[in-house]
Design a protein around this nucleic acid. Structure first.
Lengths: 172, 172
DNA sequence: ACCCAGTTGTTGACATGTCACTGAAACCGC
DNA sequence: GCGGTTTCAGTGACATGTCAACAACTGGGT
């Protein structure tokens, strides 16, 4: 590790582009979401994950693992969302420690109202700007990186590291 | 805009992969950076941008624009970095309002110590996992999205929007 | 010369996220 | 059943980011 291999021009361009896109896309999507639906991106993600679940409810740590959030962060955020009436906490029947997060009718209404506009924004600012080949490539490439980062042990000489904030399985 | 065009399977895969990668890559890079160099990613970005500049110094708003940060955020962050001795503020000769941010020797030393490891981490967790074609595609695709988001007026029926936190030019 | 709209950077209040810690409950070998 | 360990969720202190308001200053029109 003595002679650092710097990024060549092409790699530099990809890396800078990625970070710039990341920032701008985030700003814009968050802006539209807040304006059109009164939700933040974290709000949206919580509601979205909950609404995709059969019973509209999930164990707190299950939800945290799916979102790659720490339990603490989720707990704080749920407290705020609960105060706005978007979700509720219920006791968990099978585990006395646990709590179950459930979508309220208002929460369901909020996500259903927000989703079409949000998807449209994702299309407008990202997906529809790409060729089908690029969409395919982006899917392949991101999943490879995700697999690498969630592999139980570094695949090739990496220091073995777990990266998820809590004890998430190698969920993809 | 009545019938929402949802994402098809391939698009969904790309979008989810992107967000997951984003999160995991961030966590891992931030973790290594903090551990190996005692810097946060924002710290690194500030130092990096400053060190790339001819005179190791930049007007505050110039720096904010390059980083796509609000002046407020940068000002707060500089206060913290200043207390750690990484940067200093100087008065601007040509503009009585302005201030110039400059790298201190300690700041220069910090970025020089951090850079090789950080670049190695970017390689290990992203760049070296991609084929040359994918690197090329990622560069092309991200720059297209960035251009779209920074275009002065929405290129195709978009509501005209500026997305940068302050008055950034369409800098790439 | 002077006014004044706009820009620059800072600040304080607040929203959000992280970290270390805690009590309660589950798990597990005995 | 019992004691030690682990996991679950919540909490408070703190770090970071956002937003609106502000004072100092610039620069252009008159």
């Amino acid at each position: 590790m003595e002679a650092p291999r710097w990024l060549d021009e092409r790699e530099e361009r990809a890396w800078r582009g990625y970070r710039r896109m990341r920032r701008l896309l985030d700003l814009e999507l968050a802006r539209e979401l807040a304006q059109d639906a009164g939700l933040s991106e974290p709000d949206y993600d919580v509601l979205s994950d909950l609404s995709e679940t059969p019973d509209q409810r999930l164990r707190l740590s299950e939800l945290a693992d799916r979102m790659l959030w720490s339990r603490s962060r989720l707990s704080h955020h749920l407290t705020r969302m609960q105060q706005r009436g978007l979700v509720t906490r219920e006791e968990c029947a099978s585990d006395g420690r646990g709590s179950v997060v459930a979508l309220t009718p208002a929460g369901r209404q909020a996500i259903e109202a927000a989703a079409p506009g949000h998807v449209a924004a994702v299309r407008r600012h990202l997906i529809d700007l790409l060729t089908p080949e690029e969409v395919e490539a982006l899917g392949a490439l991101t999943h490879r990186v995700v697999d690498h980062l969630t592999a139980p042990i570094g695949p090739a000489g990496d220091p073995p590291r777990r990266v998820a904030p809590t004890s998430a399985g190698p969920e993809v």
